[in-house]
Design a protein around this nucleic acid. Structure first.
Length: 600
RNA sequence: GGUCUCGUAGCUCAGUUGGAUAGAGCAACAGCCUUCUAAGCUGUGGGUCUCAGGUUCGAAUCCUGACGGGAUCACCA
């Protein structure tokens, strides 16, 4: 049980014995950390209880404080009342035994395994263009959320739904057929996803030009957008594809393989993995079948032109197209199929979709459709909606070419790590291979942290002209704190000591100093933070915590020497503190996919 | 226009179910390497929490309205 939980329980018990006749709702008991300007570690807020118990705050505080200390003298050392707040000081011996019990536990903060099965779908790229900076937020967020859920005991399946079919890929295909002269990744030495993306951009250039020409010939713009020959060719290609045309299918397959190879290089470099791949091309037919059934059950309806719709006007939404009049499927068609497939394969309790907030409406519709169709998968659908990454000039759009490419960004960050390491003169004692690994660790860490440290719900603005910092609230700061700890431990010969024997004789005789206390209080908080991050599906809580912990450690490091500690007792206490600090830093960063070096 | 969402220091962001004098980082300025890694530490300056009402012992936080951003409402994905 965490300390806050213990204090809450103790407070409930104390109130019960003080006021046996009054039932006190649990939510009235608020336990917070005591503000640094007051004496104490944890605070019980008295105001919420005042009315119910008909007591003056300070009198209630005195009674409650006395009762708490008397009943729990192993936990509380003393109490003080400051204008309606009951500040409790925790016994140093409590902290000492906390450290002895946990300092060497690499799984501290984790929760026991549960039966709950959760799928986290993230990345889910289109196969017509390479990944860009905005996709990275999705990928890192999904990965981190999956890892966090695992750490808190869930059975997690990481899924990637490849949007491998649809008009978008046909656009790249048409442009490739018309303009590529058979160019391949091999012949051009261009990474496959980039090559295919180039032709997506090409399509849009040609399309724009054709629309312009038609408009200049007197056609309405809306009409011209439909009539542009290259657009009609793309639509034609989509119909041929859905009809199973062999040549179309072969080209489609070929181009997708190029893209997958490219994506895999990117995923691998970033340390991103998946347990399960779904392909839209394999789920859209299932979606169509479900829609067909829905039509027979009259949950859906068909218009005269043959298109199939659902009416959600009773839910405050409007009518939504599920299948085009020419019988081809739209985006949501395959979503319906995939949702069912996921559920049937894994009997999921929850299915989390990491998708941008631009699709809030779409996801709301999907859930409603599944509910109306009486699909058991419906209730588990959860849209983890995150804000877009924008440039100072506005949104990133692949089709306009206004994107920061993911591969370029990674390369830039790694190069930045190299430059700054060299400038700081910190390359001594590393082999070239070790240095390269270090630069990857620092560059990628900074990038991941940068995208994860902000509340996922909020959109963020990224200015490519200002490089991502390696100082302050960054992964580098945390990596550095970790390297410092490793350096001390190495100096103290910790690695060679049998781990569990070393502190067995530890006895606390001196009070904790302020820096030591701050650090141990931070350490104890970790499980609360993990729980919070799980509840909110929010990795930024972990970023904030890890940074704060590193900050408190750095401050501690400045104040207190380990190798020159005042006594053997202090040395052991501080060793336990920093061993646990390093362990939690490693654990928390691992959840975000960030590794920490032993030296840097 | 309907729906949703955001508005906190010059910039980027924290701020738990409403709790004490609203906090970090960056940028600026001033200190600290003979002592476990200065990618660090210590300090200074910087705020009408968009505005106006309301609820409350107590509001950045909850409610209403206004103003200002953004998303969405496609036979695009």
């Amino acid at each position: 049980m965490t300390l806050t939980a213990q204090i809450k329980t103790a407070t409930e018990a104390a109130l019960k014995s003080l006021f046996p006749k009054i039932a006190i709702p649990e939510n009235l008991i608020a336990v917070n950390q005591t503000k640094p300007e007051f004496i104490g570690d944890y605070t019980v807020v008295l105001f919420p209880l005042v009315k119910l118990l008909r007591q003056k705050p300070d009198e209630l505080g005195k009674q409650l404080g006395e009762q708490l200390v008397a009943d729990n003298n192993e936990l509380f050392a003393s109490f003080a009342i400051v204008s309606g707040f009951l500040n409790l000081t925790i016994q140093d011996t409590y902290w000492a035994s906390f450290l002895l019990n946990h300092f060497n536990d690499p799984h501290f903060g984790e929760k026991p395994k549960k039966d709950k099965r959760v799928m986290v779908e993230y990345s889910s790229p289109n196969t017509n263009k390479p990944l860009h900076f905005g996709h990275l937020r999705n990928i890192f967020l999904g990965y981190a959320v999956a890892e966090i859920l695992k750490a808190t005991g869930n059975q997690v399946i990481k899924a990637n739904l490849i949007n491998d079919r649809g008009i978008h890929i046909c656009k790249s295909m048409i442009a490739w057929m018309d303009y590529a002269n058979g160019a391949t990744p091999e012949s051009t030495q261009i990474k496959g996803d980039h090559l295919v993306g180039d032709y997506y951009v090409k399509f849009n250039e040609v399309y724009k030009e054709q629309v312009k020409t038609l408009v200049s010939q007197g056609m309405e713009e809306a009409q011209a957008e439909k009539e542009a020959p290259i657009m009609k060719a793309a639509q034609d290609l989509l119909r041929k594809w859905e009809a199973g045309d062999a040549a179309t299918y072969d080209l489609w397959k070929q181009m997708n393989v190029w893209v997958y190879k490219g994506f895999n290089v990117t995923y691998k470099r970033m340390g991103i993995d998946f347990d399960k791949f779904y392909y839209e091309s394999q789920t859209y037919l299932l979606g169509k079948a479900i829609i067909e059934q829905g039509l027979q059950k009259h949950v859906l309806f068909q218009k005269e032109d043959g298109s199939i719709w659902i009416d959600l006007s009773n839910e405050g939404l409007d009518q939504k197209l599920l299948l085009r009049s020419d019988g081809t499927s739209v985006y949501i068609t395959q979503d319906i199929g995939t949702a069912k497939l996921k559920y049937d394969e894994y009997k999921l309790d929850q299915s989390i979709y990491v998708i941008g907030d631009e699709q809030n409406y779409h996801m709301q519709v999907l859930k409603l459709i599944m509910q109306k169709l009486n699909e058991p998968s419906a209730n588990g659908i959860h849209h983890l909606s995150y804000g877009m990454v924008e440039l100072p000039s506005g949104r990133m759009k692949s089709r306009e070419g206004t994107v920061v490419d993911a591969d370029d960004m990674v390369a830039e960050m790694v190069a930045l790590a190299k430059t700054q390491t060299e400038e700081a003169g910190k390359t001594d004692g590393f082999s070239q291979e070790e240095l390269n690994a270090l630069y990857e660790m620092i560059g990628l860490g900074a990038l991941k942290f940068y995208l994860l440290r902000v509340d996922p719900k909020k959109k963020m603005i990224f200015n490519p002209k200002e490089s991502i910092d390696l100082h302050g609230f960054t992964a580098t700061f945390i990596q550095y704190a970790h390297a410092r700890i490793c350096s001390i431990l190495k100096k103290e010969g910790y690695e060679k000591m049998p781990k569990n024997i070393r502190f067995q004789t530890f006895q606390l005789t001196n009070a904790f100093l302020s820096g030591e206390k701050k650090l141990v209080v931070m350490l104890e908080q970790y499980s609360n933070v993990l729980e919070e991050a799980t509840k909110e599906l929010n990795p930024s809580a972990i970023c904030n915590y890890a940074f704060q912990l590193a900050q408190v450690f750095n401050s501690f490091y400045d104040q207190h020497s380990i190798s020159q500690a005042e006594s053997q007792e202090k040395k052991h206490l501080r060793l336990m503190l920093i061993i646990m600090t390093a362990s939690i830093l490693r654990h928390s960063m691992k959840l975000l996919g960030i590794s920490l070096p032993d030296k840097m």
